[in-house]
Design a protein around this nucleic acid. Sequence first.
RNA 1: GGGGCCGUAGUUAAGUCGGUUAUAACGCUGGCCUGUCAAGCCAGAGGGCGCGGGUUCGAGUCCCGUCGGCCCCGCCA
Length: 598
Amino acid sequence: MGSWRRSCYCADVSSAQNGQTLILMGWVQRRRDHGGLIFVDLRDRSGLVQLVFNPEASNEVHDKAHDIRNEFVLAVKGIVQKRPEGTENPNLKTGQVEVAVAELRVLNDAATLPFMIEDETDVAEMTRLKYRYLDLRRAPLQNKLILRHKVAMATRNYLTENGFLEIETPVLTKSTPEGARDYLVPSRVNPGQFYALPQSPQLFKQILMISGFDRYFQIVKCFRDEDLRADRQPEFTQIDAEMSFVDREDVMKMMEGLVVRIFREGLGLDLNPPFPRLTYAEAVGRFGVDNPDVRFGLELKDLTEMLKGSGFKVFNDAAAKGGVIKAVCVKGGAGFSRKDLDDLTEIAVSFGAKGLAWVKITEEGWQSPIAKFLTDVERQDIATILEASTGDLLLFAADKPSIANTVLGRLRLNIGNRLGLIPKEGFNFVWVTEFPMLDYDDAEKRYVAVHHPFTAPMDEDLEKLDTDTLKVRAKAYDLVLNGSEIGGGSIRIHRSDVQAKVFEKLGIKLEEAQERFGFLLEALKYGTPPHGGIAFGLDRIMAIMTGSESIRDVIAFPKTQKATDVMSDAPSTVDQKQLDEIFIRIAVPKKAEAPAKA
RNA sequence: GGGGCCGUAGUUAAGUCGGUUAUAACGCUGGCCUGUCAAGCCAGAGGGCGCGGGUUCGAGUCCCGUCGGCCCCGCCA
């Protein structure tokens, strides 16, 4: 490009510069060769501007333009001119003008691309990921990453203005037994020992509170070696924050302010806090899940009291075993086909139900495999509670509460989608509070922390820790956006005796607690302020803000479902020498052995 | 660990009940063309059907296995 320096971005060219000579640089979006005139759309991250090569102006430049191909990198010097009347392009920001090229420098050529750089694409995601640098040339992806930057800046600005300090925490940390599977990193200097990549900076941010930093935040990578989903990557980014001398209300209020700021600076939208709240019990009771999508109805109703003595054995047995009988009413759902009902049954079974009882209320009465087990009075009562009328479909789940709620909660979402009940536009926030502190893991036969082991119990529930363990509620809160959990946090335990007690309830022996979390227990002794915080999943927030199906679309270099990077081909085998240095011997069973890469 | 969907030119897809030389569009190459912007018109090149095995006179089509992608259950404090 020699001494040339560009005057502005492509999309910044406007009629205000009419007659001026500009230098532009960018990629060739498309060449339209009329034999005489040649048009080239020049693209950079700002957008497009049309270049014109006219043989009457310069034969030499026009000849050079003939060899231009898609994605060549060009530098041009030319004069901004208004397009001739009738040739303006209203679809382009720069559509009123064009640049008549006087000098052309081809900075680089480009091989024929595996796919076109276009806003709309139906190229397989695998191909797009392999050539991620090309996929990232597409405006939709560029815009998503630009918005992500704006959100990060809004976060830094807001939290900084509110006295938070951005402090880095280690990436090579200590493995802890609770929670997700750790990514491990061998220590060459300490043979046979391993670091773990952080699942979150949880312990470090608490330690920073103990150190007196008072308010901390970080936009930070976290790592969890678990199976992937559309909204889960093995490495993901959290907006992580912690505050001292606060209770739940203080944290939630501060973070509502953050979310408001993010949406204002990111999308120009004004949210109106405070966001509505549901307790965990309400959320699960009415919506079946702890991340309720409250944008539509179809709420769950409890029929246990009413039907526990009914003539239907499935209902009776469930109730007798301490389970619940719940139902939803699908307005107008009586038109569902046999196949629809089979689909719904399949979903119910996949979430642990033994089957799905349904009733169609038709002009001819109750059409249902279970109708014959219910009396007229019972039918009347069910219809009243479910506010059901002719043309509706009723779906029942009778099981232990966790299964009945999950099944109906998932059916609710499926049906909401199926019937188009969920508004496509808009951002609906809800806090979910008062989570149970502990859950019982049947497989491991022990209590596990619902949030994490450092979450404080609610003061009034503290004494129930031994007597009514599962009833103890935590000072925890999740923020749910359009039915996705986008953040969660809690007030932490700040007393070492309470922390030790919780470890005990979790079945972590004193020695193990000392071994794994000893530094925290020790630190808690030396004057720990009451503190609490939250972490937001930045990727999930960005996916919802940009209307993306998967968080892969808001991550520059995401991984596939098998946790590989198809562009760089990570992970891969390493030299024996590298293994020797860290004292690692490979013992992969034959079947799981990595196949030779082609 | 399990369930579902999908692998055919560079890309996106079609390919019937197994049957000649595997189609199309876009892209690509060449030519024509001075107001296009998904430019247009004409001509052309390009794959042996993810991979391996099997059945068959014959397999892109059937069977078995395997690899990969996506969605989901489990898992993810």
